[in-house]
Amino acid sequence: MTSLILALVIGAAFGAVLDRVGASNPDLIGKMLNLTNLNLAKTIILAIGVGSILMFGGQMLGLVDVGHMSVKSAYIGVILGGVLLGAGWAAAGYCPGTGVVAAASGRKDALFFIAGGLLGAAAYMVTYPMWEASGLLDPVLGGSVTLGKVPGSEYDALTGLPGDILGICIGLAFVAVAFALPERLVATPSGRQQPAE
């Protein structure tokens, strides 16, 4: 029961914040990905940095349970799947989480995104044995690993560096990148039309 209340509270907070930062707005996703407005990228990069610093800092102070970490396996399919997701994300302007938020906010195109998503997930369920047999789901780089060894964690590490201190350093680097990133990476168009690349 407690876990369901937490699911309601944290889930609702996540949905509301995704709306307020503009992540469920396909216009802002498109402008981020065509590099004309990086405010959303700065938001996400800052969030990852803040999350890292608080989580690893909390672990070092003994306030955060290291056992709550959940590190996914690395395999070639992660990159291939990332490429597919990236292409669809750019075309539709939604990813799974923001699609749900957008549909709930009244965007009809997001309902079509979710319908397509349910069909895509079903297609994967049916074709899963083929991927498994291909070897592309076999672990690479050690599988479920972090960059450095996190004290008290069940996960192995890619390097011998201390994972918590490294995590805070990388978190700070994400914050620095969020500040350093310009608002726009491609040239401003002189007319209505953006110049050819």
């Binding site: 996400i44 969030a47 590190v71 996914k72 992660v78 799947g81 075309a91 895509g120 972090t146």
Partner: peptide, 28 residues
């Protein structure tokens, strides 16, 4: 787009939330 995104997310074992944000936050 939804079809491709979810097929890809399942192949990858996660999406923008689980892999990109939660994953990089944990230095996975």
């Amino acid at each position: 787009g939804g079809f491709v995104v979810l097929y890809g997310a399942r192949l990858a074992g996660g999406c923008t939330s689980g892999h990109m944000m939660s994953g990089m936050m944990q230095t996975a």
